[in-house]
Design a protein around this nucleic acid. Sequence first.
DNA 1: TACATTATATATCAAATTGATATGTTGTCA
DNA 2: TGACAACATATCAATTTGATATATAATGTA
Lengths: 185, 185
Amino acid sequence: MAKDRKIDMVILGLLAHEDLTGYDIKKRIDGAISLFWKGSFGSIYPALSSMEKEGLVEKKADATGKRERIFYHVTDKGIDCLKAWLEDEKATNDLKYETLLKLHFGGSVDRATSLKSVVAFEEEITEKLSLLQLYKKNLEPDLDNEDHLHYYLTVSFGITTYEAYLKWCEEAKKLLAHMDKISII
Amino acid sequence: MAKDRKIDMVILGLLAHEDLTGYDIKKRIDGAISLFWKGSFGSIYPALSSMEKEGLVEKKADATGKRERIFYHVTDKGIDCLKAWLEDEKATNDLKYETLLKLHFGGSVDRATSLKSVVAFEEEITEKLSLLQLYKKNLEPDLDNEDHLHYYLTVSFGITTYEAYLKWCEEAKKLLAHMDKISII
DNA sequence: TACATTATATATCAAATTGATATGTTGTCA
DNA sequence: TGACAACATATCAATTTGATATATAATGTA
């Protein structure tokens, strides 16, 4: 068996605040959560079905609209499940940095190639960082709100690490810049 | 189709330096590479088989030992494949921080619970950081070696980001420390 | 010497996940 | 009216994980 479905916890965490459709859940994940977790329709819809069978969530008929919309509501059992997970401080943090992988194996291609990977990474991070700073500005005035405090912590994590990434990019660019080093010396 | 098998590139990158068995490859990945990529036997062995069929690697009989050992050697086609990947600066960097996920949804449990997650994370990072500093010390004297320079860059990435993590842990602990805040004010 | 434990080594499998694709509806702007 | 973007559910092959099975060689220890 692979590890328990983590996507279940993401869904339960979101449903703890409001009833949502699978599509809504995907949008929430693509927002601030995408900084540290991702989820696709291919995992969300099957997870909702299976959690419904387990009694962790329940379907709510949508009377209002004409369009098919299946809202999910978290049950007491679902809340218990979420809390049990939150109270366990064990956590697996998995990173897959293709940029770093390319850099690690970059010794057999020329430095200009490695440099291009660093610059592409730098651009990506710079863009995301300005979005995070916007999130931070919105959360800062209301840290007495327990939820906002916790959202703030994750956004602050993103900002701190992204700033470190950019600092590293500067160092990496400097080290890779001396492309003619061997021929000069 | 899911995205191309990235594990192939890890294997080709390793085989570019020396012939290895599947078991060796796993050990290499569990070393310095584990900072930014992971791989299991369940992906390594099937990848080796399929790459052999594609002509990217070839089996080398092991004459010496008595134990079953299948060494793999990278072909010219395999090297071309590796270089093509290295020369493409596009890269997807996927993070799965369960710690951050727990913190994001921590607003509905007490702060002591969130604090425990931060402390567990801090301990994990502190331990890994000292290992990285050891790697760095070993690589630093020989940065003229093109491979070492590239290894150094990834180790330096790890150190810079882990130091940022620890800085954030301090901030997070401070913000979560005021557990009686509401009742005091 | 005998025994237990750890490291070496290949391989497979169910479960989880991704990324793509299929299918159709509703709202908006020109 | 027509085009396009956003909404919404669902499925699938390919990939990956984490666990397990199986077996041999080396090492420590009683």
